[in-house]
C-alpha cells in the first residue's frame, strides 16, 4: 500500500514536472506546476511531515502559484502568450539535464544510508528521529512550533523516550500559530527538557531565523511594492 501510494505520487510528481518543462503555453505550465507541487505535498504527508505538507499546500499551491498566475495574466498580451523555445535548445538542455541526472541519481542511490545511520548511532550520535514521528503520525507541528521558539522538545525526547510519550498525546493541530496554544503540560517535563537543552549544544532552536525572516519578508515586500507601484505617485503607506 505504501509503495503503491508512493509510486503514484512519485510518478505524478515527475510527470507533472516534465509537463512543466515540455508545455509551451505558460498557463498550462502553471497547471502542471500545481499538480507537481501538490503531489510533493502528498509525498510530504507520506514522510510523516504533516505540517510541512500543509504548509506546502497553503503557501505554495495556495500562494506562490497564485502569485505566478497573476504574473502570467499581467504579462500575457496578445501574440507573446505562447513563446516557444527552439527544439535545438530543448535538445541541448535535455543533454545537460540527463548528464546531471546521471550524476545525481547514482550518487544518491549508491550511498548506504542505513549503514551510515548505524555507523553514526554506534559512534554515539543521538538518534533524533523515530520518536517524534512514529508515535503519533503527523505529530510534528508541535515540535516544530517549539523549535521555532528556540526549544527543542524532540531532542530532549530522544534521550528520554518514556517521558516524551506523554507529550505526544496532546498533539492536535495548532495551525501555524506555532505552539501558542500549547498549555496544559507538566512542569516536570519542562524541567527535564530544560536540562537537556541547556547542557547540550547540539539541539538548535530556530528562534533567530524565525524572527529574522519576518524582517526579511518586510524588506522584500517593501522592495516588491516599490517596483510594482508607478513612479512618482503620491505615496500611500506601504505594506
Amino acid at each position: 500500500m505504501e509503495s503503491l501510494l508512493f509510486t503514484i505520487y512519485a510518478l505524478a510528481t515527475c510527470g507533472a514536472a516534465l509537463g512543466v518543462v515540455l508545455s509551451q503555453n505558460v498557463a498550462r505550465m502553471a497547471f502542471w506546476l500545481v499538480v507537481s507541487l501538490g503531489c510533493v505535498a502528498g509525498l510530504f504527508f507520506m514522510l510523516n511531515a504533516d505540517f510541512v505538507g500543509a504548509t506546502q499546500l497553503l503557501i505554495y499551491v495556495g500562494g506562490t502559484v497564485v502569485l505566478l498566475i497573476f504574473g502570467v495574466m499581467l504579462t500575457a498580451s496578445g501574440p507573446f502568450n505562447t513563446i516557444k523555445s527552439e527544439p535545438a535548445e530543448m535538445i541541448q538542455a535535455g543533454v545537460i539535464g540527463i548528464a546531471l541526472l546521471a550524476i545525481l541519481i547514482p550518487t544518491v542511490t549508491s550511498v548506504d544510508w542505513v549503514g551510515n545511520r548505524d555507523t553514526l548511532s554506534h559512534a554515539g550520535v543521538k538518534s533524533p528521529s523515530g520518536e517524534f514521528n512514529q508515535q503519533g503520525e503527523g505529530g510534528t507541528s508541535r515540535h516544530i512550533g517549539a523549535a521555532l521558539l528556540g526549544v527543542r522538545v524532540d531532542q530532549a525526547d530522544a534521550s528520554a523516550p518514556s517521558e516524551a510519550h506523554e507529550h505526544h498525546e496532546a498533539d492536535h493541530d495548532h495551525g501555524h500559530e506555532h505552539a501558542h496554544g500549547e498549555e496544559a503540560h507538566s512542569h516536570a517535563a519542562h524541567d527535564h527538557a530544560h536540562a537537556q537543552v541547556s547542557e547540550t549544544n547540539q539541539a538548535s532552536g530556530y528562534l533567530l531565523p524565525f524572527e529574522i525572516i519576518s524582517v526579511h519578508l518586510l524588506v522584500v515586500l517593501i522592495g516588491a511594492s516599490y517596483l510594482a507601484r508607478a513612479k512618482r505617485r503620491v505615496e500611500q503607506p506601504t505594506s
Binding site: E86, P87, A88, E89, I91, Q92
Partner: peptide, 17 residues
C-alpha cells in the same frame, strides 16, 4: 556558435516539429 551548430543539427527535427 555551440547553439547554432546544435540548431543546424536539429533543423530537420525543428521543421518536422
Amino acid at each position: 556558435r555551440f547553439l547554432h551548430s546544435c540548431a543546424s543539427l536539429a533543423v530537420g527535427i525543428a521543421q518536422w516539429d
